[in-house]
Design a protein around this nucleic acid. Structure first.
Length: 214
DNA sequence: CGGCTGATCGTG
DNA sequence: ACGATCAGCCGA
């Protein structure tokens, strides 16, 4: 199979809504010690700078944590949420304009990727089993929810693709191991829009249709 | 399938 | 103190 073309700077230096919609169907690639993991992006959300009450950068909050959102389009922004999960974003626009796209869901792009995602998610579930003093799951006896919900949420996506805060503030246009490539064709009619999830505190911004999914 | 809840820790 | 969440548990 021919190598897919990587997305260049021009793709990411557009507004956060355009970049979000255009990312659907593209392939997120992470080269890890376990092998290359490829996920087809199926759900994303836009976070639109200093005026978006749902965004970490609302009101111009520029701190050590939010700094990557202010960097040029194509920069990764990975942060810890609820003390135990990572969330992965890609910055849009140019330096100084803190728009970003939260990556909410992928499906494995090939069999190898599916195997790696399953292994990483299983390891994560077993760390919790251990703490609860329960028997670890095996690839055979694990609950069906593992496959049904392999990487269909921002935290699960990061676990399945081995994305941690070590991957924060990476330029995904230049990186050799963490980048996005062309994927499958998506037509406008395949793109659905809904309210963003988990930002009830954002008042009217909680109702904006800035979540996009296939 | 939908609703509820505890877990857990870096950040400001 | 507060989350851009998740899994497990419950009832329908």
């Amino acid at each position: 199979m021919p190598e897919r073309k990587r997305l260049e700077r021009e793709f990411f230096t557009r507004d956060g809504i355009t970049v979000a919609r255009e990312l659907l169907g593209k392939i997120l690639v992470h080269e890890t010690p376990l092998g290359i993991v490829r996920g087809i992006l199926t759900e994303v959300e836009s976070y639109m700078g200093e005026t978006d009450k749902g965004a970490h950068t609302y009101g111009g909050r520029r701190t050590a944590r939010t700094e990557p959102m202010y960097h040029q389009g194509g920069t990764s922004y990975v942060y810890l949420i609820y003390g135990m999960y990572s969330c992965m974003n890609i910055a849009a626009m140019t330096e100084g304009i803190p728009q970003a796209v939260l990556l909410r869901s992928v499906i494995p792009a090939d069999e190898d990727s599916g195997r790696i995602m399953r292994q990483l998610r299983l390891e994560e579930m077993n760390r919790k089993q251990l703490k609860r003093n329960r028997e670890p799951y095996t690839p055979e006896n694990c609950p069906g929810s593992l496959d049904r919900h392999l990487s269909d949420g921002p935290g699960k996506l990061c676990t399945a693709m081995h994305i941690t805060r070590a991957d924060n503030d990476i330029d995904m246009v230049e990186s050799e191991v963490f980048y996005v490539t062309e994927g499958k064709a998506v037509t406008p009619s395949q793109i659905h829009a809904g309210k963003r999830i988990g930002i009830d505190y954002a008042e009217e911004a909680a109702d904006y249709l800035w979540r996009f999914y296939l």
